[in-house]
Amino acid sequence: AVTGSQTALLLRAFEKDRFPGIAAREELARETGLPESRIQIWFQNRR
C-alpha cells in the first residue's frame, strides 16, 4: 500500500506534470521506494 508521505510526494509531482516521462517516474520511484511500474499505474489511475 502507498503510505501518506508517498501519496503526498506523488500528489505534488502530479500537480506539476500529469504525464511524467520515464525519467521523472524513475526519480519518483527512487524517492518513494515504490517500483516505477507502480508509479505509472498511480498516475494513470489519478488522471
Rank of each mutant, 00 (worst) to 15 (best):
D17R: 03
R47I: 08
P35I: 05
R30F: 06
D17E: 08
Q44S: 09
L28A: 00
A1D: 13
R38F: 15
E31L: 15
L10D: 00
L9S: 06
D17L: 04
E31N: 08
Q44L: 07
A1H: 11
T3F: 06
F43Y: 04
L9Q: 08
I22M: 12
E15A: 11
A24N: 04
Q44V: 09
A23R: 11
W42I: 00
L9C: 09
R25V: 15
A29P: 00
A1F: 13
L11G: 03
R30K: 12
R12V: 07
G33M: 04
I39Q: 00
E27S: 09
D17S: 08
L10Y: 02
E26I: 11
E27P: 01
R46H: 11
S5I: 13
L34N: 00
A1E: 14
Q6D: 03
E27V: 12
A13L: 07
I39H: 02
R30Q: 07
G33L: 03
R12S: 08
S37E: 12
Q6Y: 07
E15G: 06
G4T: 14
Q44F: 08
E31G: 04
E26L: 15
T32E: 01
S37F: 12
A24D: 08
L28H: 00
I41V: 10
L34K: 02
L28Q: 00
L10C: 00
K16S: 07
E31Q: 15
T32R: 00
V2H: 05
V2T: 07
E36C: 06
I41E: 15
T32A: 04
A23H: 10
A24M: 12
K16M: 10
I22T: 10
Q40L: 14
N45E: 14
A13K: 03
G4L: 14
A8R: 11
F14H: 00
R12K: 13
R47A: 05
A24L: 10
L11R: 07
D17Y: 05
L28W: 01
A1M: 13
R18M: 13
A13I: 05
E15R: 10
W42K: 00
F19W: 13
I41K: 10
N45R: 09
F14L: 03
I22S: 10
E15P: 02
R47K: 03
G33V: 01
A8Y: 09
R47L: 08
E31I: 15
D17K: 03
I39C: 03
A29S: 12
V2E: 08
A13S: 06
L9H: 07
P35T: 14
F19N: 10
N45L: 12
T3S: 12
A29K: 03
P35M: 06
A8N: 08
S37M: 09
A23S: 10
G33P: 02
T7H: 15
I22P: 14
A1W: 13
Q40G: 07
R18S: 08
Q40T: 09
Q6R: 06
R30Y: 06
Q40F: 12
Q40S: 11
E27L: 13
D17M: 06
I39P: 01
G33S: 04
K16R: 11
T7I: 14
Q6V: 12
F14K: 02
F43A: 02
A23Q: 13
L34W: 10
E27N: 09
S37V: 10
A13N: 03
P35Q: 07
Q40E: 14
A8K: 12
K16W: 06
G21K: 05
G33E: 03
K16H: 09
L10F: 00
A1Q: 13
L10V: 01
F43R: 00
K16F: 09
L34I: 08
S5R: 14
N45F: 08
S37W: 15
R38P: 02
G4Q: 14
R12L: 10
V2G: 04
E36V: 14
E26N: 11
Q6M: 11
L28M: 05
R46G: 03
W42S: 00
T7W: 15
E27M: 12
N45K: 11
S5H: 13
A23P: 05
R46E: 09
G4N: 14
L10I: 01
Q44G: 05
L10K: 02
Q40P: 01
W42E: 01
F19E: 06
Q6W: 11
G4A: 15
R12N: 07
E36L: 12
Q6L: 08
A29Y: 02
Q44C: 09
S37R: 11
R25Q: 06
A24K: 11
L11V: 12
L34F: 03
Q6I: 13
Q6C: 08
D17V: 04
I39R: 01
L11T: 10
